[in-house]
Computed example of a mutant assay.
Amino acid sequence: MIITGENLPALLPEGSDVNITIKVDKSGLMKFEAEFPVLEYTEELEIPIKAIEAPEASELTKKIANAKRCARTVNANEILERLDNLENQLENEKGSADGKMKILDGLRKELLQLDTLEKQQEWPQIEQELKDAYFELEDLVRKVQTNGDTDKLNLEREEARVTDYKQKVDITIKDKNRGASKELTEEMRSLMFDLVNKLTSGEMDVLALNSRNENFNSFKWRDANKA
């Protein structure tokens, strides 16, 4: 639905008023009117609305069951009660297309609330893991400085990294950015691995290789003889 200058009888001055009217009748036809007072012109459009098919009762049953499991996980008793009501409504209205559409709409509202609750409950753990990764990294660099192991590391560079991570951690926690927090945690843990590996002359690589050897048969190799 686009109205361009080609639809208008004259040039429309910038900032001109436009009066919009939208009507929908029972047949599913939407009538759109755009009145341009300065041009004394009205553009009319008719747009058929594609009917949305009601979901199958079995599909709704599965979705409600999944939502109820999620509600129990986050201890959302009020939402669980409303989901029970939707389940009962479905039993009574599973033959009605309108009834199933109303139930679907209600289910979507509950799922949005569940999603919010899940994120709220997940955040404290994500935040703690982020803080732990940062403090472990900070502690390692401090110990390197205290013990005088600076011959194996560029201490000035690593201290600058820690300072940079501190700023990133503070911003991420303030924004409660779950995705960025997980990425940042992984970055710092990877850096920790590399630093310890340098300090121990490759011991971390040896441990990782030994771990792979111990779990050799658990990996899905293309060719185990070449691995």
Rank of each mutant, 00 (worst) to 15 (best):
M1C: 06
M1N: 05
M1K: 06
I2L: 11
I3H: 07
I3C: 06
I3N: 07
A10R: 01
A10V: 04
L11I: 09
L11G: 06
G15M: 00
D17G: 07
V18P: 04
N19S: 09
I20H: 05
I20N: 03
I20V: 13
V24Y: 01
K26I: 13
G28V: 00
F32M: 09
F32I: 11
F32Y: 12
E35P: 00
F36Q: 05
F36D: 08
E43W: 12
I47D: 00
K50Y: 12
K50L: 13
I52E: 14
P55A: 05
P55S: 04
E56S: 14
E59D: 12
E59G: 06
T61S: 13
T61L: 15
K62L: 12
K62Q: 12
K63G: 06
A65C: 00
N66S: 10
N66H: 08
K68F: 12
K68P: 11
R69F: 15
A71N: 08
R72K: 15
T73S: 13
A76G: 11
N77I: 08
L80S: 15
E81T: 14
R82M: 05
N85V: 14
Q89V: 02
E91R: 06
E91H: 06
N92F: 10
K94S: 12
D98Q: 05
G99N: 01
K100R: 15
M101D: 01
D105V: 02
G106T: 04
L112Y: 02
I126P: 05
E127A: 15
K131E: 07
D132V: 13
A133M: 02
Y134L: 11
E136R: 10
E136I: 01
V144H: 08
Q145E: 14
T146A: 10
N147T: 11
N147E: 14
G148A: 06
D149F: 11
D149Y: 14
L153Q: 10
N154V: 05
L155Y: 13
E156N: 14
R157P: 08
R157Q: 11
Y165L: 10
V169N: 03
T172E: 08
N177P: 14
G179K: 13
M188A: 08
L191T: 15
V196C: 07
N197D: 15
N197L: 01
K198I: 07
L199Y: 08
G202K: 02
G202R: 01
A208P: 03
S211M: 12
N213H: 06
E214T: 10
E214F: 09
N215I: 01
N217V: 12
N217A: 08
S218G: 04
K220Y: 12
K220V: 04
W221F: 10
R222K: 07
D223Y: 00
A224F: 04
N225T: 09
